[in-house]
């Protein structure tokens, strides 16, 4: 039985800072069999058509995380993505677009500068600092319950491919943001009973660009090549902050004000949320923004009505409690 074959066009991002002033796209037409991955297709192009095409790849089995790139606009691993599966995602019929990941500096073509990811792992103490003294390492294993293991098991799947980093909407507005994979790692470490530096880590997470900046767009969860529930981890570190009574942050105050509003009237009292989150002085700094909203007649109401179903909302809160 021979496999189905088809002519596919690859529209590939090109940029070599040595010679190109601006990025551009190259088009390649190749005949592709069903069952071929994106990586094998671009390897074919590199071997037979244009050997200057530049991208990273290594294990070719979805475990090393080297070959992440945007395929039809979405960050994924080239080695585990089937060409056939991408055809429905093509804007133009049978034209697959290949581009570097977002939110990274481009070194050449699909190769991006990866060092910021590692700097973030360092900043947020993304390792276990063992309880056991150096000279006693290796003598005895910890007893870890199935229940504890399950909490961080999924997070240890992360291969640092950077797909979440590339898709994150918060990263796009600030490259200083910890990033989804940073939060995932932080959560994995915070929940590990073998680690001793949770307090320090939580302190850094509580600062600007840390755990409170996520906007819950869920794009990281959609992009994760290992299907890790990253948002659970992000909520997880925030919960940890509540449990530890870390009230001294905008993020905490924002979340607290939010919950109080829903509990009391069933909706957000938007006009005062800035004051309650940022304090009087912080809120004053937002005045120009408020005036702009006023100018466009988008100023939220000062007095809000309680929603009709508030009884039920209160019951939900009771139940959670």
């Amino acid at each position: 039985m021979t496999e189905e074959k088809k002519d596919i066009y690859f529209k590939i991002f090109r940029f070599n800072p040595e010679v190109d002033q601006h990025p551009f796209y190259d088009d390649f037409k190749i005949s592709v069999e069903k069952g071929v991955t994106i990586l094998r297709a671009i390897n074919y192009i590199k071997d037979h058509v244009d050997s200057t095409l530049t991208y990273r790849f290594y294990c070719q089995a979805g475990i090393c995380g080297s070959c992440s790139m945007r395929v039809n606009g979405v960050s994924k691993l080239a080695c585990t993505t089937q060409v056939w599966d991408e055809l429905p995602n093509c804007k133009e019929t049978d034209v697959i677009t290949i581009e570097p990941m977002n939110n990274f500096e481009i070194i050449r073509d699909m190769v991006v500068e990866y060092t910021p990811v590692i700097s973030k792992l360092e900043k947020y103490i993304s390792w276990v600092t063992p309880k056991i003294k150096q000279q006693d390492l290796g003598k005895k294993e910890h007893i870890i319950s199935e229940a504890e293991f399950k909490v961080y098991d999924a997070a240890t799947d992360c291969i640092l491919c950077g797909a979440c980093y590339s898709e994150c909407s918060m990263m796009t507005s600030s490259r200083e943001y910890i990033s989804p994979l940073g939060l995932l790692k932080a959560y994995r470490m915070v929940k590990d009973s073998r680690d001793t530096r949770s307090n320090d880590r939580m302190k850094v997470l509580n600062e600007d660009h840390g755990m409170w900046d996520c906007t819950h767009c869920y794009r990281c969860v959609e992009a994760c090549v290992k299907k890790i529930p990253i948002m659970d981890a992000i909520q997880g570190v925030r919960n940890e902050a509540f449990l530890r009574g870390m009230k001294n942050s905008e993020g905490y105050r924002h979340a607290y004000a939010f919950t109080q509003d829903i509990k009391s009237v069933g909706r957000l009292k938007e006009s005062t949320i800035a004051v309650r989150t940022k304090g009087i002085f912080g809120a004053i700094s937002m005045l120009p923004f408020a005036l702009k909203m006023l100018g466009r007649n988008r100023m939220p109401k000062v007095f809000v009505h309680t929603i009709p179903g508030i009884k039920h909302v209160k019951r939900i809160f009771q139940k959670i409690k």
């Binding site: 276990v128 063992p130 390492l137 290796g138 294993e141 910890h142 007893i143 199935e146 961080y152 680690d195």
Partner: peptide, 22 residues
């Protein structure tokens, strides 16, 4: 046994038996 335990001590997430050992 020494290197496996050392790695475990340093955070390697080994799968566990019911009694919590590696």
């Amino acid at each position: 046994p020494y290197v496996v335990r050392e790695l475990e001590n340093l955070g390697a997430p080994f799968s566990r038996l019911e009694d919590g050992t590696i």
